[in-house]
């Protein structure tokens, strides 16, 4: 067995890939949310950002390829490892109870026990989200600036439910995922482990609140999301 196949076949090696792709996706969430927050600054700022992003085609292609690869690897490995982990105990217990005294939630709701569920909800959300913003499927968004498009989509009633569910699921997912990824790649030391755990939880809250803020605010303050401006041609 070559060293690399051995590594990628092992439980530890595959969790390493899960962790690296997960951390990369967390980084992407930060960038994505920062970009979105420009909507609160104003339509112009958002349009400028969108224009800058889309005018650099090489960068966009590279970023999208990397993102797609990371998502694909992360999702495929999630399914295979979950399946293997489940089948490592064919006969279950009649009763199970945590012995950890620092659990805030019962096991059925705990972030670390529901990674598959939150990940799946996040994935379903992602499909709708890509269809909305990348493929612009079924919206009739011609002759609109990026900010106007975004405003229209997040103001939609069905999107309120879907985007909020997605944001909350992803928030719960990363609240365990970020700290877990650090442990998996070997970052654990009395000096900073408590810090990582805290940052991970705060990050989860920021993701959940940050991304759900757009559809919620669009319902509460519709005027914030009506952007003026015309499409600049020739970009």
């Amino acid at each position: 067995m070559s060293w690399l196949t051995g590594f990628l076949k092992s439980t530890v090696g595959r969790k390493f890939v899960m962790a690296l792709t997960g951390l990369f996706l967390c980084f992407f969430l930060v960038v994505h949310l920062s970009g979105n927050l420009l909507l609160y600054v104003g339509g112009e700022a958002y349009d400028k950002y969108a224009h800058a992003l889309h005018s650099n085609e090489e960068f966009l292609m590279l970023a999208e390829t990397l993102l797609f690869a990371a998502f694909a690897l992360h999702i495929v490995l999630a399914f295979t490892t979950t399946w293997e982990n489940k089948s490592a105990r064919k006969t279950g217990y009649r009763k199970t109870e945590s012995k950890r005294d620092d659990r805030a939630f019962p096991l059925l709701l705990a972030p670390d026990y529901t990674m598959m569920v939150t990940g799946l909800v996040g994935m379903l959300f992602l499909i709708v989200h890509i269809s909305d913003f990348k493929l612009e499927f079924g919206w009739g968004l011609e002759d609109m600036t990026p900010a106007q498009k975004a405003g229209l989509i997040v103001s939609d009633g069905t999107r309120l439910i879907i985007y909020m569910a997605g944001a909350i699921a992803l928030g719960i997912h990363v609240s365990h995922g970020l700290a877990s990824a650090c442990q998996t790649i070997g970052f654990n030391h009395p000096k900073y482990t408590a810090g990582i755990q805290l940052v991970s939880r705060i990050f989860g809250v920021v993701v959940a609140l940050g991304f759900s803020s757009f559809p919620v605010m669009a319902q509460m303050y519709p005027e914030w999301f009506q952007f003026v401006g015309t499409v600049t041609t020739g970009h």
């Binding site: 439980t11 293997e84 490592a88 105990r89 945590s98 950890r100 670390d112 990674m115 877990s180 998996t184």
Partner: peptide, 20 residues
């Protein structure tokens, strides 16, 4: 690690129930 995997133990999800 190779032997641990071969025996059929699952992977680590960092739930830390083991430690407790």
């Amino acid at each position: 690690v190779a032997q641990m995997d071969e025996e059929g133990f699952g992977g680590c999800s960092n739930t830390y129930e083991c430690e407790a």
